[in-house]
Design a protein around this nucleic acid. Sequence first.
RNA 1: GCCCGGGUGGCGAAACUGGUAGACGCAAGGGACUUAAAAUCCCUAGGCCGCAAGGCCGUACAGGUUCAAGUCCUGUCCCGGGCACCA
Length: 847
Amino acid sequence: MQPNYQPRDVERAAQAFWAEREAFHAAEDPGKPKFYCLSMFPYPSGKLHMGHVRNYTIGDVLTRYYRMRGMNVLQPMGWDAFGLPAENAAMANKVPPAKWTRDNIAYMKRQLQALGFALDWQRELATCDREYYRWNQWLFTRLFRKGLAYKKTGVVNWDPVDQTVLANEQVIDGRGWRTGALVEKREIPMYFFRITAYAEALLGALEKMAGWPEQVKLMQKNWIGRSEGVRLAFPYELGGEQRRLWVFTTRADTLMGATFCAIAAEHPIAVHAAKDNPALAAFVEECKRGAVMEADLAQLEKKGMPTGLSCTHPLTGEKIPVWVANYVLMGYGEGAVMGVPGHDERDYGFAQQYRLPIKCVIRTPAGDEVPAPWRPEYAEYGTCIRSGKYDGLDYAGAVDAIAADLEAKGLGEKQVQWRLRDWGISRQRYWGCPVPIIHCASCGDVPVPDEQLPVVLPEDLVPDGTGNPLNKLPAFTDTTCPSCGKPAKRETDTMDTFVDSSWYFARFACPDNGAAMLDARANYWMPVDQYIGGIEHAILHLLYSRFFTRALKEEGLLEVDEPFTNLLTQGMVLAESYYVESGSRREWINPADVEVTRDAKGKILSAKTRDGRAVVFDGIGTMSKSKNNGVDPQALIDKYGADTARFYTIFASPPTNTLEWSDESVEGSFRFLRRVWAYGLKYGAGPAPAGEPKAARHEIHNVLRQANYDLGKHQFNTVASAAMKILNALESIPGRNAASEEGLSILLRLLAPITPHLAHHLWRALGFGEDVMRAAWPEPDPAALEQEEIQYVVQVSGKTRGSVTVARSADQKSIESSALAAMHKYVADQRVKRIVIVPGRLINIVV
RNA sequence: GCCCGGGUGGCGAAACUGGUAGACGCAAGGGACUUAAAAUCCCUAGGCCGCAAGGCCGUACAGGUUCAAGUCCUGUCCCGGGCACCA
């Protein structure tokens, strides 16, 4: 062994050892329990960021731990390679997205290898490979024929200057990011996946998914959003014709209090009424301005305008005005709602603003009236009042009675409503998987036949920000109809990149299969036993993957219903972000390039760029390309080595916490690894084992017991602490003996998943064996955990006053009397009311 | 706005099922070694009062339940994630 810890040499040698033996190549082996451990694959944005390092280190700790536990572990890696940033980079650098992406993949792959992750590189895949995305297209054509993929119009952000569709991310304060033009909503034809057909199944299965965090299941449950209510109609007359305005409500019990109806600007009634009402037309236009994001819509000032039309209350026959309101969304439910200002906060505000009548029809905890201002009690369930024949009924009774009456009139029925909407997958962008459809003047939308797949994306185009360059490429667009043979146009929309990432986990089982999307090997490895990724994916990616897994099962390609048995959602790595205002745009400055002045409490007083320009602090948030606040882990690896980077990310905080990055505290992790090395050096040179200090052995086994418990609940930071505690205990043992030999072997095995290179080297150099990865996981010795005496904490009336030590065999009486003896100073002549004893822990004398 | 999390020393955090709050570290201060520095080792350390013994306060804030609350309940504030075209 070298006298000093040289991570570069240690790591290079260990990695060569693993590479030579193909140590991480996983093969199907029915004789061993399989364990499929997967971290979410990265977008190849250029270089790894700390979030990646954290994610993959967590995955690698689990992978190596389960290997040592004797499982047949698969841990693959790939690239989520299509997407918007490649197009932006292409525009900035005049380089085709394909080249930029593949260069990034090559660089990031080297970084992953340098970190020593136990990955099976033989299974590597990239979603921009035609042998991968052809199966997206193949599956799309299957779903299209079944009606699970279909075409309808959808709303997009439209930049009127660049004449292009913008991603939500490209809309800043309602304006296009490049042009600064006010963004408009525009309806265009798009393809959708009918995920709503699986709403019931996706919701129901959540209950059985014991390996998922409650938090994530709850988010998905709310997202799918099952609600039971009543769909009902307000009849109206338009152009001499009888029509019906349908609404959905979960509060049919308040129907007798409905005083208006509100419809979306895109609703057919609004469109019709606007024809000869310029003011209304202007309002409808106003509603169409702005971006499509729900967060923005929800915070709009509530505005409305009467259509001049009225409809008939389905039960009372009263005339009720119909308003256009900017808070009603066409995409949800019927695009219309009934307004019950007495019992709904939003309707209440709207009615007050526009002086619409407010009726109280429910006796709430606030009483029989609803005087201003609004109180939350007004919306609570209660007994119907001023509701004619429904008076006295409670919520459930009123809903039943009203639904029955509506049904008898043919004006409504009970209905289950879902919040979940179908998944729009069309993107008017170049760098993605082409939608395999051919548009024929006579045959319509024709799916591309299997033998013509894949529809290959040309890789040499450079987008210019004004729409999809595929539209300007006749060699791509001009084709013939597969069904009639006449000239036809190829679809140029590409798929949402979430399509690519909704099944990659299954493809890792058989990435080399050129003849089928999936094969029997997928049924060996699936489901993923442990999936690890950022909490920001809690809804969309995970829900889409669950949907795809079900669709693939129905195609006979998979046997499982759910893709991920256990889910670990790591917290985000956050960093401060800063920008310089330049005109209407923001130039984001990397925190490493910002000089910050802080006050004594650490609050930021001022910030400047290195060349002295004033910088605006934008708060703490997720590290992202767009805010240029990523911390490059490469510097860390170069300076301290992979094991320190890995140890630090594990030690710094538990996996599910957010981690606010600071690179000042890495030093301590490096120091610890150096101490391990130095101990190994001293140990190797020490005399032969002799003696057995009981106390140190007890300490080590006790720490190990806790570490194994913490591993079970994936709290790895305290496992790292445990390694430090064991080293502290080892260093307290004078010389070398049986306890230190055992303790060191425990320490190295505990460290093997976290700092595999160092553990590998010392395990061999100190003669413990050939390969620490093949060693058995250590278990505490019950004999070492036993203690003759137990220390009890003693409290008097809940205040901690000291402790007593009693023999393990002591009975309750003698414990009480020794506690009382020790506490006579505090108890004195007060009457002892009771004595609470928590076995093995605590005594509370209540006076 | 809606849905989901989180808030404990100067900092990252720990605390088992409600049972000694601050383990293990970082940064800091003091000391040893050294011509010096680095490295290493030892000591101190939640706050306030006190020479000390010791006492009081303390887990975002305000209440509540309990012999006992960081942990359970109610309300409030602040921070983070998601909101369907960033990935």
